[in-house]
Simulated scan of single mutants.
Amino acid sequence: MTDVSKTSKESGKEDWKPFTSSDYRDVAQKLVHFSAKGVNSNASACGIRLDSGAGLRLPYVSVRCLMTRGRTIDTDYTKNTGNTATVVKQIHKLASGEHDQDTREAQSHLAAIAHALSTGYQEGTDSVSPRLRQLLLPRGVDYVAISPLPSGGLSREINRRVQAHLEALKNAEQSEREPEVRSGFPRWSLSRLGIGGANPQNVGALVRDMQTALLFDAPKENPEIRAAYAIHYKGIRLGLPRQSMAAWRDWREKAKAENGGRIPTDMAHRDAECALIKAIGRAVLNQGAKALRRLGERRDDLPGTGLLSDQLQDGVIRGLIDPAERGKDWPRQFGARVARAIGAYSFGEKEGVIALDGGSLDTIARWIEEEAR
């Protein structure tokens, strides 16, 4: 005869506590995506829940970025009072379908929960607990204080992906696939974090998901991405090519040596000097084209929608890099900028700069302008 008094624990099933849709709604209204308890279980209750429209379309693993991809990130409690832990546990089971409750009743509960979680919510954010950390991040000429808070729901989502990856790796290793096929499933290292102390449940229902951590090598700097970011925000320096500048200087010295210390003003000499100056202009324009290619190669790594940041206010440099930024007056402005740079160019302590009067600079500016059109 079967012993009907056998407990749920002995039968391998957990008790399902009967709660109403109102019970689930009341608890769900105070659930959060980010909780201070994950930093310090003794910190004052503090947490933030994002509303359904807070998604952010960027290529990162974060709560907001996953929300734009249609992922529902599990929420957690900030205070475990009364039946809160049990209700939240059952909310997660209802959301995942891991229950054997009446379908109609479950759908009623899920509707109440979804309605409660659709809006934003924050708790305990009026002040910062001394048990939390703060980071000062630059914003313009000032700083903004940030208190990083972990997300148990994001940890759970990452763990799901990790487990799926490990399962695929296991299947690949057991298969008869070629080694290069199995190499498509790299082996990841995992570690365990002691979050929560002796009673992890005080941190939250998702604390055990937060205890699993992926181990990686420290990120290595990518000089190409760093250079692209520098161009995006600061542009490039308008540098004059030393070789072309030296060729122009040598031509001037030779012309003066052959003509009694003066450069002739006949058409042949003017055309020769014009060609040398335009070669300098072309070299500067090529610098901009090179910067544009570098930005194009790293377009997916750049923030925002434009190749150049709005922080870059120099119109001449913007146009030098991106021809789409060139207005009607840009060639003239570019010619004047390069002419000033040529007039101030130093060939070293012994040679110094080439003394040019205003008329000469105007002529050089006009030649550069012609090259830029």
Rank of each mutant, 00 (worst) to 15 (best):
residue 188 W to V: 11
residue 78 T to I: 15
residue 220 K to W: 00
residue 81 T to F: 03
residue 169 L to S: 06
residue 184 G to E: 13
residue 12 G to Q: 12
residue 334 F to D: 03
residue 164 A to C: 05
residue 155 S to G: 09
residue 141 V to C: 03
residue 75 T to W: 05
residue 161 R to T: 08
residue 214 L to G: 09
residue 62 S to N: 08
residue 350 K to D: 14
residue 189 S to T: 14
residue 107 Q to E: 15
residue 103 T to R: 10
residue 70 G to F: 04
residue 207 V to K: 11
residue 346 S to Y: 07
residue 274 C to Q: 06
residue 191 S to L: 05
residue 90 Q to D: 04
residue 218 A to N: 13
residue 77 Y to H: 06
residue 188 W to Q: 07
residue 61 V to Y: 04
residue 9 K to G: 12
residue 230 A to F: 00
residue 291 A to W: 07
residue 123 E to N: 14
residue 143 Y to G: 00
residue 139 R to G: 04
residue 40 N to E: 05
residue 197 G to N: 03
residue 281 G to A: 15
residue 44 S to L: 04
residue 242 R to P: 01
residue 40 N to Y: 08
residue 68 T to W: 01
residue 154 L to D: 08
residue 139 R to Q: 06
residue 323 P to T: 05
residue 276 L to I: 03
residue 334 F to Y: 09
residue 109 H to K: 15
residue 39 V to M: 11
residue 181 V to H: 15
residue 244 S to K: 13
residue 223 P to N: 04
residue 258 E to H: 01
residue 264 P to Y: 11
residue 12 G to T: 12
residue 52 S to G: 02
residue 132 L to M: 06
residue 315 G to W: 02
residue 170 K to A: 13
residue 245 M to C: 12
residue 212 T to K: 06
residue 188 W to K: 09
residue 332 R to C: 07
residue 347 F to T: 00
residue 169 L to T: 07
residue 60 Y to V: 15
residue 346 S to T: 03
residue 306 G to K: 13
residue 28 A to W: 05
residue 180 E to Q: 14
residue 312 L to K: 05
residue 200 P to M: 14
residue 113 I to M: 04
residue 63 V to S: 05
residue 60 Y to R: 08
residue 158 I to L: 11
residue 272 A to N: 05
residue 111 A to C: 00
residue 165 H to N: 03
residue 320 L to K: 04
residue 52 S to W: 00
residue 373 R to S: 07
residue 121 Y to W: 15
residue 85 A to H: 10
residue 181 V to N: 06
residue 214 L to K: 04
residue 252 R to F: 05
residue 10 E to M: 07
residue 303 P to F: 10
residue 50 L to W: 14
residue 373 R to G: 02
residue 295 L to V: 03
residue 47 G to D: 03
residue 350 K to Q: 08
residue 199 N to S: 11
residue 279 A to F: 05
residue 54 A to Q: 11
residue 14 E to L: 14
residue 129 S to W: 01
residue 144 V to F: 05
residue 88 V to E: 02
residue 144 V to Y: 01
residue 304 G to D: 02
residue 159 N to C: 06
residue 193 L to P: 05
residue 188 W to S: 09
residue 323 P to E: 01
residue 307 L to A: 13
residue 204 G to E: 04
residue 110 L to V: 10
residue 273 E to L: 09
residue 101 Q to N: 09
residue 65 C to P: 01
residue 227 A to C: 02
residue 354 I to H: 03
residue 361 L to Q: 10
residue 168 A to S: 11
residue 366 R to M: 09
residue 215 L to R: 13
residue 18 P to W: 09
residue 71 R to C: 09
